[in-house]
Design a protein around this nucleic acid. Structure first.
Lengths: 345, 345
DNA sequence: TTGTAAGCGTTATCAC
DNA sequence: GTGATAACGCTTACAA
């Protein structure tokens, strides 16, 4: 049961293979009767043209590459969904690689994408390559791809690629401001990795909001959680034991939130009675558990589909100027930001 | 800046292209010096051979297809992770399609996989095709693929493909038994879609456990949630209003659990004080929210990687007998199964 | 409107 | 050890 080729179809339909090709691609003139005849044979044999042969011949594939740092992180899973739907809808095929946040794996993924001659690539960088040489290296790799690409979610230092990112500064600013409006004075931050661009941006948004409202940033209330669940947990444990808690935190991302909550639960503290917070990301499933955790909202699926659209638009017009889409997250207040006043010890 | 080809490398290295091919693939004899020379040139130009040309020539691609019903469902995201890691590790490239649980999209995905001439396919079927004609049609599509394939997670009626599935019967049995051991007598079930194989299996596991322990299945306590969050929510609302609650439920899947919890929260009932339960699946993030929901545990990443391994093993030996791996889930008791005794109204 | 033939970038089969 | 050369299955001039 050999795979049937265009040649087989041509023979069976009694035409040349270029005619079959025309029918498949809807290119050039071909007699209506011939079309019917050829289509019949194709259906009969359930013929599917070889993507490899086609892309070899056309010197262009119909595949889109996607590189994600963690494929099973709910946030990236949503992005994947957005990309996948769009890619599907537009008749492309998706090639997916995970980088596990490691530059080395990312580089390997990029090589795979090159071998596949993907028509375009969407990448959430493994890190932000803020280090000058690392950045140069990464940029070189991306250039070598020789295809349109969109950088998603994690901005890279100095990049002139199309991109879809989040306004981290304004997000952090609004979240902090919400806490201030709720009446908090002693507000801390669980900061992310300050070596990362987004970590710094969020930190600065927080500082700015404090400053603009005449509040000082107390270093005791700055927890360096590094966007990591375990590290945040440990630091928060220390802070709780040292009895060095503000009345509220702005928490820089979802993993930090998890670490924070674990520590809080362990110490039998409750939100917002003992400690208030607003998180940068929504915790997956918090609606199900009926918990009032305030957070910043962004439509993650949209992040993915916008990235795909950007890519397709560049296919259509390679010369268009670089476009950078920046999503501004909205504050969603559910109660965890509240200041619960009570007699203090 | 044209893409560099094997011909370019050959010319630059002063050898024939077959020699370059040999170096790339490590096949046949080639002088050590030549190897070095060729490799140098390849590195210099950062050459990556075209996957399309290669698979055209070898009549075999290095891609693995994966079709998932919902790419952003945490459960499938974990499966994806498992598959992706394995595929990566073994030097293959992953092509991903989503079916959105629709047979039509699934069929389109299968066509895409055929065009790509994937070397193997892993599929979580959009449904179980228990209807005879639907099943026949699906089986035909799968056969037509003409490549090894592994059916994952959702068993199909009468399939003689390699597969990795869960023992639904024994899972439901153990979960129900756990409730019985906790002292419950009036135990209900939130059943899934009984048109689906897994829905029936779980229902039967529940019945069997009841029977073996001398307990009757009270039809009032059988909620037909159809594996759907919204439907379960509505049915549970009715049951609550009608004041027709057992002391505990076995809940057939995670979406049902969500619907159940929403109804419970709305009615201001609490777990396990007012109502106890054991769910078939773990709710994503329940550890974070510190809730004591008992459930069945299975290593989801492993589901994915096992499926990939099964596929690779079949590549090595196409004649080996069909292998069906069945995962038996373990009961994990966290408190929601407890029988809280108290004076009744 | 259709068929012929060249070419896409590899691998595989030969001779040398 | 190595280099021509013929596939592989398709698209695309170019002829007819």
């Amino acid at each position: 049961m050999r795979t049937v080729t265009i040649q087989d179809i041509a023979r069976e339909a009694g035409v040349g293979k270029s005619t079959v090709s025309r029918v498949i691609n809807g290119t050039g003139y071909v007699h209506a009767d011939t079309v019917v005849k050829v289509k019949d044979v194709m259906t009969k044999y359930n013929y599917q043209p070889s993507a490899a042969a086609r892309s070899l011949s056309k010197k262009e594939s119909d595949t889109i590459g996607l590189i994600l740092p963690e494929v099973n992180n709910p946030f990236f899973a949503d992005i994947l969904k957005g990309v996948s739907q769009m890619v599907d809808k537009c008749g492309y095929t998706l090639i997916l690689c995970g980088s596990d946040n490691e530059a080395a794996k990312e580089a390997r993924a990029l090589e795979a994408m090159r071998r596949q001659r993907v028509k375009g690539l969407i990448i959430v960088p493994a890190n932000d390559y803020s280090n000058e040489t690392a950045h140069a290296h990464m940029e070189k790799l991306l250039r070598e791809l020789g295809c349109p690409l969109v950088v998603l979610d994690r901005p890279m230092l100095r990049m002139d690629f199309d991109s879809v990112t989040t306004d981290n500064f304004s997000g952090a600013y609004s979240a902090t401001e919400a806490l201030i409006r709720a009446g908090h004075k002693r507000i801390g931050i669980i900061a992310g990795d300050l070596n990362l661009f987004i970590g710094r941006e969020r930190y600065e948004g927080y500082c700015k909001a404090m400053e603009q409202n005449g509040l000082a940033v107390d270093p005791h209330y700055v927890v360096l959680g590094k966007f990591d669940r375990q590290i945040t947990y440990e630091k928060m444990r220390q802070a709780i034991r040292a009895n060095q808690l503000p009345t509220a935190y702005f928490i820089s991302n979802n993993l930090s939130e998890m670490g924070f909550l674990t520590a809080i639960h362990e110490a039998r503290l409750s939100v917002p009675d003992d400690i208030a917070f607003v998180g940068f990301d929504k915790l997956q499933g918090q609606d199900i558990f009926n918990v009032p955790y305030s957070h910043l909202e962004r439509e993650v699926l949209t992040l993915g589909s916008k990235a795909a659209q950007l890519l397709f638009r560049r296919f259509d017009n390679p010369e268009r100027p670089v476009e950078k889409i920046v999503i501004v997250p909205r504050v969603k207040l559910l109660g965890s930001e509240l200041l619960v006043t009570r007699a203090e010890g």
